[in-house]
Amino acid sequence: MSAETAPRLELDEITREFQLRRGQTRRVLDAVSLHVSPGELVSIIGPSGCGKSTLFNIIAGLDQATSGSIRVDGREAAGSCNHAAYMPQKDLLFPWRSIAENAALGLEVQGIKRRAAQQQVREWFPRFGLSGFEDALPFELSGGMRQRAALLRTVVQQQQTLLLDEPFGALDALTKQELQAWLQQVWIEHDWTALLITHDVREAILLSDRVVVLTPRPASVRMVIDVALPRPRGIETIAHPEFARLERTLLEALSS
């Protein structure tokens, strides 16, 4: 991070404890600090159950940290919902809404009129490979298309940060690869900033500028590594010696 640009999102020593019965507490997050600069994609990987989702809930404003602070563009933002757009692992497209109506959900919640929201989202459909499916119902789409529709619903909210919680986790390997390649392409064309949770080390290396490795619960930051591989990264990147080195470092950090 260069000194003159304030990070888009900055977590400072976020700790979250849950009250159990009989006065006991369980610490899920232990002083997690990380930052995401504008235009960056930062991945978070860690053992399952380490508290990644809790971290996302805190950033999305659905949960409050016990201590620590969140700053968005330098301003305190704890408990606020209007700086990050959240994309859960399940596509959660509502079966009673057409794809365009689903995509416009966030805009409608923001108070934009149905008509205007529709107009806004429809412009995005070609870039997301969803042209012609504006009025389709979710069940008519394949898994990969549904996931793209869910991402579309996330990005049209025009928030400072995208929070992607294992967006490709439920897809088969081929579809996943296809979507990773596609995501990189649209990434280049847009000025998005994102935090991505993933289980997949290769996915983290392919997509991110930086990878944050968390420890088992209570989660703290074990390692942060920069990914300096040239973009766009495709199948040939996997053969790159730097890729192998990063993959090995990350896998070792995860298993130690």
Binding site: A60, L62, C81, Y86, L105, Q110
Partner: peptide, 9 residues
């Protein structure tokens, strides 16, 4: 789905 909507505000 409820959490998603709340995250949207």
């Amino acid at each position: 789905a409820s959490a998603l909507l709340r995250s949207m505000g």
